[in-house]
Design a protein around this nucleic acid. Sequence first.
DNA 1: AGATATTTGTTCGTATGTATT
DNA 2: TAATACATACGAACAAATATC
Lengths: 250, 250
Amino acid sequence: MSRKRSDQIAEGLRQRILSGELPPGARLESEAALSARLATSKWTLREALKSLETQGLIRIRSGPGGGASITEVSASTANELLWNFCFSRDLSVADIYALRKLLEPMLAREVTPLLDAPTLARLSATAGRCCSQRQAGRGVAEREDELDFHNLLAAVSPNPLLRFLIEFLNGLLLKVVAAQHHDPALAGVDINYHGHDYHLELIDAFHARDAERAEAVMYAHMQAAERYMGELTALSQRAGGHQNEETRDP
Amino acid sequence: MSRKRSDQIAEGLRQRILSGELPPGARLESEAALSARLATSKWTLREALKSLETQGLIRIRSGPGGGASITEVSASTANELLWNFCFSRDLSVADIYALRKLLEPMLAREVTPLLDAPTLARLSATAGRCCSQRQAGRGVAEREDELDFHNLLAAVSPNPLLRFLIEFLNGLLLKVVAAQHHDPALAGVDINYHGHDYHLELIDAFHARDAERAEAVMYAHMQAAERYMGELTALSQRAGGHQNEETRDP
DNA sequence: AGATATTTGTTCGTATGTATT
DNA sequence: TAATACATACGAACAAATATC
């Protein structure tokens, strides 16, 4: 039970949005009109709108014809809000890969019959970029290319939730690697994991429309990646490296 | 690039929280002190704090010793924010079960060696409740018992993200069923799906510490449940029932 | 391109509510 | 009970952004 007036207003509007009464694109009344109709001050209403805005449910524009309009919550917004939840839960690499090992192979199987020529070309391009620049040992940037490949694949999925979760897990992993890269114990380590070979094998399976094989290759890919990431974190911990969160009390 | 001053302040504070500089439990300065230090008015600061509050990152209390204190984002908060993202994506029952069929069996396997006597007793009690009241045909309430069983199981998982996702998917499903139950075409339909038998078999496998069998039973359970739910939605659509979202244009 | 009108964004001053001591 | 310290709320005003003419 939220006692704050602004929370009551925000929840009321949120329910009207979630019920479909206010579809995406609809414009809310102006601040002045709304505050008058709800018998509240401009600032209490503003707090309510601010809450809806950070939830990604509305967008507020200035100027004439402006005001609050209902929008669909973007994937990036949901991504950041879910990251807020995860960051303090000190997830292990094993926790993340437990999910990746399930979702990525399923995705590979699902999209095999759906991939068209241009998408396959883009996948090949990303895999090629990974390879040609490998000798540079670019560390985090290299991993970003790695994840680009998987995100490209996820975008093909007709399942919005699966797509979102895979992209989220990939981002999660990137944050972990980035944090570890700041660890002095890992500063000089050569990051030499090569997802590249698996990517080429995947593309091959896609071209052959062999969903079973794509699924199997992806699973092997995940296993190898987990092993590699596990060794990295073990290295970090053995060196007494500072853990990501120091929020735990003894 | 957020041009609004309040957004800048909120992002700054958020980064200080996410970096670990402001651990959970830490108290922020009072509104007056903060607004003075950041050279902004109390209202702009208030909007920033409101944003952090709706993200679940801080909690604001009145009274002396009050003010904003950093909190861990609760699962229920993350749940609602992610629901905001999902509601407009008109997920199909198949989409949700594609994930449940992966996650629930894995959970069953994972928790088999971890279940202790009191938890097993509670699981039995929930399964029993499902059964004893079955003849009443309670509809949505019956499905809530069904999901209680799965949430109880999810709470045992040592993987915070897996636990969260399973609970989220279950909630998602409940919302869909509740919405369909308002559909006039389904008002009189007897909701007679019995997950009960599968639950009993699961408990049996748990007692025998047979992880493989628990996983297999859970998968069969999900298949049966998906089939049942699919029939329900087909019934709803065939009757020309109003879809959940009417936001799609032809 | 520039002026203008409309609407949000920001600030001040002040008053009220609430929980701690 | 009363004093205190803080959030909550209201009203009026000005500044900044932006679509329209």
